[in-house]
Each structure stands twice: as C-alpha cells, then as structure tokens.
Simulated assay, not measured.
Amino acid sequence: MNTILRRTIALADSPLFEGIALLIVRLALAAQFWRSARTKIEDGTLIEIRPITYDLFRDEYRMPLPEITGTVATYAEHILPALIMLGLATRFGAAGLLVMTLVIQLFVYPEAFWTPHVMWFGLSLILMARGGGMFALDRLFDRRFATR
C-alpha cells in the first residue's frame, strides 16, 4: 500500500502530469472566453462584429463608449484565448483574461463572483504563475533563449 501511494504521489509530481494539467487549465479558461467571443460575431464570418454587440455593451453591460469597448472586448476575447490555447505568450494572455474578468466582476456582473468568476480568476492565476507547461509553444522559446 505504501508503495502505491508513493508511486501515485511521484506521478502527480512529474513534469508530464503537470504538463497535462496545465494544458487542461489552458483549454478550460480559453474555451469560456472563446465561446463568448463567437456570440458577438456575425455567423459565417471570421470576425465581423454583430451590431447587437454594441447594444449589449450599452444597454446590459452599461459600458462607456460601447462601440469602442465592444470592439476591444470582442477582439480580446478572440486573441487572448487563441494565444492561451496554443500556449503562446500564455502568461500575457492569462493576465489579459484576468483583467477582463476583473472588469466583468466589478462593472458588469458583480453578483457573479462565486460562479463563474472565481474559477476564471483561479485558472488565470495558475497560468500566470506556472506558464503554459510542457505542451505549450512557449516551451520552444524557453529552450531557444535558455541556450544563449
């Protein structure tokens, strides 16, 4: 029994296990924002913003300058999750989504802290602290710069 416990702990402490865990964290966080981003885009287009998006930012979110904030948020909700999914500039992407979550929490849906904002905060902080992990494109750059 003691040997099984030690092996289990050793497996959970391995770089491979951490890499898989960070990949799942990246995908879980990115998927939330990516799905939201796609609701703001005209069907069949890559990134043509729907006019109703600006109404949403003005009427429901009550954001200033809805044409600007809606456009910036929509692009950020596409770019940052894409970076995170690829594991490219993971810490930067996670920091950007953390800032977006803070804005949503403070100004849009302050009552939604425990679900889902606290999860988004946690996932963002994990990626900011640990990076993208073994299965991230960031790894290629880490190795390239480490050899110099």
Rank of each mutant, 00 (worst) to 15 (best):
Asn2Tyr: 10
Leu5Lys: 15
Arg6Gln: 14
Arg6Val: 09
Arg7Cys: 03
Arg7Ser: 06
Thr8Lys: 13
Ala10His: 02
Leu11Glu: 05
Ala12Met: 09
Ser14Asn: 01
Ser14Ile: 05
Pro15Thr: 14
Pro15Trp: 09
Leu16Val: 10
Phe17Val: 06
Phe17Gly: 01
Ala21Ser: 05
Ala21Asp: 00
Val25Cys: 03
Val25Arg: 07
Arg26Gly: 03
Arg26Thr: 05
Arg26Val: 06
Arg26Gln: 07
Leu27Ile: 15
Leu27His: 02
Ala28His: 08
Ala30Tyr: 01
Phe33Met: 06
Arg38Tyr: 07
Lys40Ser: 03
Asp43Ser: 15
Gly44Glu: 03
Leu46Gly: 06
Ile47Trp: 14
Glu48Ala: 14
Arg50Gln: 15
Pro51Thr: 11
Pro51Trp: 06
Ile52Gln: 15
Thr53Met: 05
Asp55Pro: 00
Asp55Trp: 12
Asp55Asn: 12
Phe57Val: 08
Arg58Ala: 15
Arg58Trp: 02
Asp59Tyr: 09
Tyr61Thr: 02
Leu65Asn: 15
Leu65Met: 15
Pro66Cys: 02
Glu67Thr: 15
Glu67His: 15
Ile68Asn: 11
Gly70Ser: 08
Thr71Ile: 12
Ala73His: 04
Thr74Trp: 01
Thr74Asn: 10
Glu77Ala: 06
Glu77Thr: 02
His78Val: 14
Leu80Gly: 03
Leu86Gln: 07
Gly87Arg: 04
Ala89His: 07
Ala94Ser: 02
Ala95Ser: 11
Ala95Trp: 09
Gly96Ile: 01
Val99Phe: 13
Val99Pro: 00
Leu102Ile: 14
Val103Arg: 02
Ile104Lys: 07
Gln105Val: 01
Leu106Ser: 08
Leu106Arg: 13
Val108Glu: 04
Tyr109Asn: 14
Tyr109Leu: 10
Glu111Val: 06
Ala112Thr: 09
Ala112Asp: 14
Ala112Ile: 02
Trp114Asp: 13
Trp114Arg: 10
Pro116Tyr: 08
His117Cys: 04
Val118His: 11
Trp120Arg: 08
Gly122Ser: 06
Leu123Asn: 01
Leu123Gly: 02
Leu127His: 01
Met128Leu: 10
Met128Val: 15
Met128Lys: 09
Ala129Leu: 14
Arg130Asp: 02
Gly131Tyr: 05
Gly132Cys: 06
Met134Ser: 09
Met134Val: 07
Phe135Ala: 04
Ala136Trp: 03
Ala136Phe: 00
Ala136Arg: 05
Leu137Cys: 04
Asp138Met: 07
Arg139Ser: 14
Leu140Cys: 10
Phe141Asn: 11
